[in-house]
């Protein structure tokens, strides 16, 4: 491939297209907007130098030179616009959350698989906290496909429901939950899940959020014999299915490459919601 394009004058755009196929190619993005509804949470909007396109559930690797690189599932990744919901959980995400408008960051990808949006016409989306980004992208794409979408969306408080207006736009109905009772129903997203399932009778359930919440959604879906997919969070290092830090056990599946989206049947038979590997590869409990 390299010999091919380097021996011919293909023009800049074609050359970049081929480079992106055969190597890790970073696209530079300039931060246009940093909306911080809370101290530790930011919605970042980047204007990219070149187009990038990501399906709902897929992730990109977001790099800040001298700080680090983290995996993020975008809420918008289309053409030259990239929207990321970032929570400050470590050194690199802290830097992202506090990034000043006009600063640059670098992105490669997309990586991994994505939610199956062609499995039916009735989708129940269950989103918790900062995990909501890929579910929002799914909601937007489903509404373009004229699917019937019901969303259950929860967070600690009203301020944590950063995508509430967007979900309202793309869903037939949104059930909002806050843990402190400041908005919508009081409690966690899984509180009335069985009732919603029983009345809406969805064909597919998609979920992202804290792992214990997702485990509950998966268990409920499997119990109701409804096809379910969850996008899981693991420590992603190589993003290429090589290093093994993101392993799902006992199957030995890799969240970075075989996932991050897995079906309920796979997850229910795994250590999902129980244990995961730390940065050193040590088995640690999920709380």
């Amino acid at each position: 491939m390299y010999l091919l394009w380097s021996n011919f004058n293909l023009g800049r755009d074609n050359k970049i297209y081929l480079m992106r196929l055969e190597m890790s190619y970073y696209v530079r993005g300039k931060l246009e907007l940093n909306n911080k509804p809370l101290d530790k949470i930011a919605i970042l909007e980047f204007d990219l130098d070149e187009n990038m396109s990501c399906k709902p559930g897929q992730y990109i690797m977001a790099w800040l030179p001298n700080y680090g690189e983290i995996p993020l599932s975008p809420s918008i990744c289309d053409d030259r616009k990239l929207q990321l919901l970032v929570e400050d959980v470590g050194a690199t995400s802290n830097k992202f959350v506090n990034l000043e408008v006009g600063s640059y960051a670098y992105f490669r990808g997309p990586f991994g698989n994505f939610f199956d949006l062609s499995r039916g016409n009735k989708y129940l989306l269950v989103a918790g906290g900062t995990g909501a980004a890929p579910i929002l992208m799914a909601a937007r794409n489903l509404s373009k496909l004229n699917a019937e979408v019901i969303t259950i969306y929860g967070g600690k408080s009203r301020k944590h429901l950063v995508f509430l207006e967007d979900f309202n736009k793309y869903s037939k109905k949104v059930f909002a939950y806050t843990e402190d009772g400041s908005f919508g129903y009081s409690g966690v997203v899984t509180k009335d899940l069985q009732n919603v399932i029983s009345s809406f009778l969805p064909e597919v359930i998609l979920t992202t959020g804290p792992e214990m919440m997702m485990r509950k959604v998966v268990e409920t879906s499997v119990r109701n014999k409804i096809y379910c997919e969850a996008s899981i969070v693991r420590i992603i290092k190589c993003a290429s299915g090589v290093c093994g830090s993101c392993v799902l056990e006992p199957q030995g599946l890799l969240a970075c490459k075989d996932g991050p989206v897995f079906s309920g049947e796979v997850l229910i038979n795994s250590n999902f919601g129980k244990t995961m590997r730390s940065e050193s590869g040590k088995e640690v409990e999920i709380k």
């Binding site: 890790s24 680090g68 983290i70 190589c238 090589v242 940065e279």
Partner: peptide, 18 residues
Amino acid sequence: RKGYDNPTFVKIKCGYLN
């Protein structure tokens, strides 16, 4: 050992760097 900070693995034209 926790290992190094990301990026830790990149694909280049003639192979991989880790």
